[in-house]
Design a binder for these strands. Structure first.
Lengths: 269, 269
DNA sequence: AACCAAGTATCGCTGTACGATACATTCGTA
DNA sequence: TACGAATGTATCGTACAGCGATACTTGGTT
């Protein structure tokens, strides 16, 4: 059995909460740590691995896993070699997507956009230093695992991220750049603070952001921001294509207006 | 702000576990009950609503919601009118899909199938009396909310369900029929046990299952089962189209062989 | 056959989480 | 503008839920 590698670039949000809050139920935090152990996993995990990753003892892991198993949030792997996340998780996925008003508003517009552009169209939502993909309308050729709901990418080096940053103050942008763990995900990834600021400025002027192969070789993406009524950026719309079919200039000329219209339609309710 | 109605036909799996199991951490169960409160919600929920739906007191709900909020699994609604599921849920969605070997194996085949048939293609997984959609490759026209990951449908009255039942013993099929809460979801939904058994038998003979408007008016769907090496059915592949474009016979003649091939390719590793 | 690791079971003590209640704040209505 | 209802927030003493050390079972590997 082959399992998919983890390959998650986005930094999971800081789990550095806790402390002695009288309302904080730590058993729940333990459960979520156990579930989060799978974020870094590329295969089913054993109890001990879960214990280690979740930062708790064997007994604790045993109890938590047992409980989550009863409830359907953790399952035994098909060939009984370890634990994997359980199907009940998907029920909550549905709830999240259904009840997120931005997703609700954006969806018909995205479908329409996808129909027009015939390239991949994504909706991502901001969570701290990353963007999380909430809706993905694939085009023909990509592999499914490059386009999973729940995948996340860093803000600092993506088209969507820069579209989002374009709607922030310079101070906020600097803070994001500062706090991000800036790695060269591909050789083309822009990691220099000054260069990132320049790209953000460019996005402000153009009304859309562009990224070339900064996450994936051969990929070109443009994005426009989705904002709250008060102007706070909440996420982005992405259009992504292949550099084997497009040069950057044509891609932008063709799709930037469409991405702009779509974002506009969503932003004004 | 408009919110999407619940409209979930599949029966959520029984949460009738618990009792006095020494390894069972009930605080975790409480947390999951709170998250599950959103399954029946069509709008953000207040603390009291969550307490009621989750079957616990106000204090308990307060603590659990507080904790889940710290962790990002629950958020305040945008206009501060109630609570909604939080974005961290999507991280676990991704883990589930990544680590499910069936999804992993099926995905490339599904993408290829989608390219060929140009209609909606879905992958569903069995969970008790229902099928949960794990991957959905939309066609042009549907509304996004009809095609959410995590949506579930009953086994007894769907093409996928009957494809799955076709790989079970008569006794197992009867048990599913018996335990299912059989409602007429549309006027065309087949709810009579004998009629269901006949459709299952038909699926056994044809190697695929057919359903006409049993879940959604105007929809035609065929499905083939995905099975474990030992023959246990695990889920199904669906191809769904519109009756405004297809008559049943043409649809079957055209797509049944393709659905069969795809399932075959996935089933033999 | 012998070993090692994974999963399962047991148990007494402690500190976590329980739930009642009281407070604060925001909303809709008169 | 004042009122009342409902929502979210804070506090506190007590009981029992969950903690973690340890020991047992099972199954796969060398």
């Amino acid at each position: 059995m082959r399992y998919i590698q983890k390959a998650e670039y986005g930094v999971p949000p800081s789990t550095s909460i806790d402390e002695s809050d009288p309302l904080f139920v730590q058993a729940i935090a333990r459960a979520m740590q156990v579930l989060s152990a799978f974020h870094a996993a590329g295969k089913p995990l054993t109890l001990n691995e879960i214990a280690a990753a979740g930062g708790l003892g064997k007994s604790g892991a045993q109890r938590v896993v047992h409980t989550l198993r009863q409830l359907g949030y953790v399952e035994r792997d098909a060939d009984d070699r370890g634990y994997v996340p359980g199907i009940r998780i998907l029920d909550h996925t549905r709830d999240y997507l259904r009840l997120n008003p931005l997703v609700a508003r954006a969806s018909p517009v995205l479908m329409e956009l996808r129909r027009t552009v015939r390239e991949r169209v994504d909706l991502s939502l901001r969570d701290g230093l990353r963007l999380v993909y909430a809706a993905r309308l694939q085009s023909k050729r990509e592999t499914f695992f490059a386009t999973l709901v729940g995948q996340s990418v860093p803000i600092y080096c993506t088209s969507g991220g820069r579209a989002v940053m374009a709607h922030m103050s310079d101070a906020e942008v600097d803070e994001i750049i500062e706090r991000s763990e800036r790695r060269e995900i591909t050789p083309k990834t822009i990691t220099d603070p000054g260069a990132i600021r320049a790209k953000v400025q460019e996005a402000r002027e153009n009304g859309y952001a562009l990224a070339l192969e900064e996450i994936l070789q051969g990929e070109i993406a443009i994005a426009t921001a989705l904002v709250a009524p008060d102007g706070t950026p909440l996420g982005a719309i992405h259009i992504a294509g292949s550099l084997s079919e497009w040069d950057a200039e044509t891609f932008c000329r063709r799709f930037a207006p469409l991405a702009g219209e779509a974002a506009g339609a969503i932003n004004r309710f």
